[in-house]
Amino acid sequence: MKRCALGAAAVAIALVAALLVLWPRGVEARPQVAESGQFRFELTPTTTKSGSNTLDLVVTDHSGNAANGEVTVEPAMPQMGHALAPITAAPVGPGHYRVGDVGLTMPGQWEITVSLSAERVVIPLLLT
């Protein structure tokens, strides 16, 4: 009886350890950078998981000075034919903008088009 209990405990511990090691995790959200002729755009999502997301944007000129103006983002997933209407980013501070509650509903490769004045860049964003 003692051997059965020890064997069951060992199997349970091994199962928990395997789940901890193999459980899928989201990739850490890291800044994605793109440059246009006039600006540097740095986009950081709050998460790399599909679903509702917040996108932080820092826009500077090539000298590092904060850019000003209306910033819009247009998320699209061309492989699946998905696109969202342009969203105006809210200014948070000089050169810092935020777009909340962006519905990136599917895992996969998204393309975030960011615009300021006549400058546009496309920033790839991979979601799990």
Rank of each mutant, 00 (worst) to 15 (best):
A5T: 11
A5R: 07
G7Q: 01
A8R: 03
A10Y: 06
A10V: 13
V16W: 12
A17K: 04
L20V: 01
V21L: 07
L22P: 01
P24Q: 03
R25G: 06
R25P: 01
V27T: 09
E28W: 03
V33C: 09
G37H: 03
Q38K: 08
F39I: 09
F39T: 07
T44N: 12
T44Y: 11
P45V: 11
T46I: 12
T48H: 02
S50G: 07
T54A: 09
L55M: 11
T60E: 07
G69Q: 00
V71K: 04
V71T: 12
V73S: 02
V73W: 03
V73E: 10
V73L: 04
A76Q: 12
P78I: 01
G81A: 06
G81P: 08
H82T: 00
A85Y: 04
P86D: 10
I87Q: 15
A89I: 15
P94Y: 04
P94V: 08
Y97M: 05
R98D: 05
V99M: 12
V99Q: 02
G100M: 13
D101Y: 02
D101A: 13
V102P: 11
G103H: 08
W110G: 13
T113V: 11
S115F: 07
S115P: 05
R120T: 14
V122A: 11
L126K: 10
L126T: 13
